[in-house]
């Protein structure tokens, strides 16, 4: 089951957030977004120091899991971060995050002439395609 998606630009501003299958009210999403970005920043530093072998900080971190959710992480070379939270039993969704980046984000956001880079995404085409894509993945409602 997919709970939500976050997209952060390279400055750490959340440019897109949407949630599905909601279980608890999210009263302070903006706070959560900052907390999440801060945590991922430290987590990446933690991983590169803990790693027994040299690790690429951009592609090194794949996902983490707790008792009630799993966080999937994909970072592009330009520093845009895609994060999806699902239930803990979902298999790796990084391939889907890559597809969301290359087939939906690049096509409908980056190539959109009226989109101002690094601002919140309000492109209908992007939102519709993203929803359509995620809803047909087997992970969405299971």
């Amino acid at each position: 089951m997919i709970f939500n998606i976050y997209i952060f630009n390279k400055e750490g501003v959340c440019i897109y957030f949407e949630e599905w299958n909601k279980k608890k009210g999210s009263a302070n999403t903006a706070e959560d977004q900052k907390l999440l970005f801060g945590m991922l920043y430290s987590l990446k530093a933690f991983i590169s120091t803990s790693s027994p072998k040299p690790i690429d900080p951009k592609t090194g971190f794949h996902c983490y899991k707790t008792s009630s959710y799993k966080l999937h992480f994909y970072e592009t070379l330009s520093g845009t971060k895609f994060i999806i939270m699902t239930d803990p039993n979902t298999p790796d969704l990084r391939e889907d995050l890559k597809k969301i980046y290359s087939n939906i984000f690049v096509e409908y956001v980056i190539k959109n002439p009226v989109y101002q880079p690094n601002t919140a995404i309000k492109c209908d085409m992007f939102i519709n395609h993203l929803n359509a894509y995620l809803k047909q993945t087997p992970a969405f409602n299971n």
Binding site: E19, K23, I55, C63, Y64, K65, T66, S68, Y69, M85
Partner: peptide, 15 residues
């Protein structure tokens, strides 16, 4: 996002 949860149980990375 799904109610009360434990902390991190597993982290997966490349190495």
């Amino acid at each position: 996002p799904a109610g009360s949860s434990s902390g991190i149980e597993l982290i997966e990375t490349e190495t």
